[in-house]
Design a protein around this nucleic acid. Structure first.
Lengths: 243, 243
DNA sequence: GATGTCGATTGACGTGGATCAAACGGCTTT
DNA sequence: AAAGCCGTTTGATCCACGTCAATCGACATC
C-alpha cells in the first residue's frame, strides 16, 4: 500500500476517464473514447493547503486548473488596493479561463480549504481540442457559460438589494452542491462573511444581518458556517418579487 | 454605380481581408493568408435600424455578429421583469458569445443607431477554427477577454461609488473610441442616461448629477449626448484614490 | 483551564444614492 | 410657429446600507 507501484495505480485511477467528476468537468458530454484521449492531457495534480494560492494576478498563464477536491475563491485586485471576490469554485469547475487572453492571470485564486486540482496544460488542450472536435465544442461551451455566469453576477450587483443577493447566493450554492451529490439543504460555508460580502458587493455586517433576518423568518438555520435551508421556496420568492 | 455588378463588388470589398476593422475584430493578429480564409466564413451582413433588435434572449443561437458600423447595447432580463444593460458594443466588437453554451441567446441585443453587422455562422467558425490554428487561438483569446471584461464590470459594480463608476465608464469609452481612430476627448453618446445608469447600477438621476458635477469641476463639458473630456487625468485620479 | 485571536453578531448613527416631483430643453410632427 | 413628447436636469426628502463600536463565541495554543 506504500510502494511505488501502488502510487502509480493511484494516479491512474484519477485520470479523467475514471474520475467521478467527469460529468461536471471538462469531459462533460464526451464519449468514452474521447475522454480516454483526455487522459493524455490531464496527468498532473497539485495539492494546496488552505490559504495557499494557486496563482496570482499577473502570473504567467500556462494551464487551466480543474478543482478535484476542496474549494477556491478568485479575487480581482484594483490598482488602489481594493479587491473583490469574483467567484467561488467547487469540484469539477475549471479555473483560469481569464488568463488565455493576455497569457497572464487576471485574478488571484486561493484555496479556502485543503484542496487538489488537476492541471490542464493549455497548449496541449489547444492541440487536443484541435483534434477532438467535441472537446473543442465542449471547451467553447464552458467559456460561454462562464460569460453568462458573470453576466448573472452583474445583474445581481446592479439591480438586487442585500437580501435578494444573499438569497440568490444561497440558492446558487445549494444548486451546485446538489449537482455534486451533496445535500441541497444543508452545507458548510467555506468562506467568511467578509468574503461573501465582497462577492455580493456588501459589507460583512450587512451579510450577517441578512443571515440573522433569514433565520428569524424561518427561512434558514445558520450557526457560524453551517447553513441549513428550511424554506427554499421562500428564498426563491424573495428573488422573484416585483422591483 | 447602381448595377448588379457594382453591388457585388461592394460586397467583395467588405470581406474581412479588406475590412478596415480587421485589427480590432475577429481577424486580429492573423496573417494575410489566414484572413483570406475568413472571407469564406463571413459573407453575409445585416442592416438594422435604430431600436431594432439583433436577437432576443431565448432566441436560438446560430451565429456570432461583429459590429461593422453603428452601436449596440445588450441587456439581460430577469424573471420579474427587471433588466440591466450588460454591455455596449462598437465597431469591431463581436456579439453573441453568450449563446454558445446553451445554443440560445442569454441576452437581447439592440441597435442604438442605424447599424450594420457581419454575420459569422457559428458552425462554420468552429469548422474553420478547427483548420486554422491561429483562428482557434484568436477565438479563445476573444472569449477570455470577454470574461476579464465582465470581471472588471463586477468590480465596478461591487466596489465603486457613483462618480467613480461614471469616470471609469467615460474613460473606457474614450479608450475604445481611440482604438478606432476617433477622438479620445470628444464623442457622442449613443445611449440615454437611463441606459448608462442601468449599465452602471445607478439611477438616471444619479448619472445626470454626476455628469453635472464633473462639468462643474471642469473635468468634462457635456451637452446632452455630446461629451468632451477636458481633464482625462483628473478623471483617472477619481478612480485611483484610496477607498 | 486560561489566554489570545479571529470571525460573527448586534446596536447606534451617518450618508450616498434612490425616490418623488417639478421644470426645462431639444426634437419631431403638424 | 405651435404643440407634444422624451430625455435631462435639479431640488427635496427618504431609506438601505455603510460605518463605527462593543460584545460574543469558536477555536487554537500554552
Amino acid at each position: 500500500m506504500s510502494n511505488a507501484k501502488d502510487i502509480s495505480i493511484q494516479q491512474l485511477k484519477t485520470v479523467c476517464s475514471t474520475c467521478s467528476l467527469r460529468e461536471l468537468c471538462l469531459p462533460m458530454g464526451l464519449s468514452q473514447d474521447e475522454v480516454d484521449q483526455l487522459d493524455n492531457l490531464v496527468y498532473t495534480r497539485r495539492r494546496l493547503k488552505r490559504g495557499e494560492s494557486l496563482y496570482r494576478a499577473g502570473d504567467e498563464f500556462t494551464s487551466l486548473n480543474a478543482v478535484r477536491t476542496g474549494f477556491f475563491k478568485s479575487t480581482v485586485v484594483f490598482e488602489d488596493g481594493r479587491d473583490q471576490v469574483t467567484g467561488f469554485h467547487m469540484p469539477g469547475e475549471v479555473m483560469g479561463l481569464d488568463g488565455i487572453g493576455t497569457e497572464r492571470h487576471a485574478v488571484s485564486t486561493i484555496a479556502l480549504e485543503d484542496s487538489e486540482v488537476c492541471i490542464i496544460p493549455y497548449s496541449r488542450l489547444e492541440e487536443l481540442s484541435h483534434e477532438v472536435r467535441s472537446l473543442q465544442n465542449q471547451f467553447h461551451r464552458m467559456m460561454s457559460r462562464e460569460i453568462v455566469r458573470d453576466q448573472g453576477v452583474m445583474m445581481l450587483l446592479g439591480t438586487m438589494r442585500a437580501e435578494e443577493r444573499l438569497a440568490a447566493f444561497l440558492l446558487n450554492l445549494s444548486q451546485r452542491f446538489t449537482a455534486r451529490g451533496y445535500s441541497a439543504s444543508e452545507f458548510h460555508l467555506r468562506m467568511t462573511r467578509e468574503e461573501i460580502g465582497s462577492y455580493l458587493g456588501l459589507k460583512l455586517e450587512t451579510v450577517s444581518r441578512a443571515f440573522s433576518k433569514f433565520q428569524d423568518q424561518g427561512l434558514i438555520a445558520v450557526q457560524q458556517k453551517h447553513v441549513r435551508i428550511k424554506d427554499a421556496e421562500g428564498l426563491r420568492k424573495l428573488l422573484g418579487r416585483e422591483a
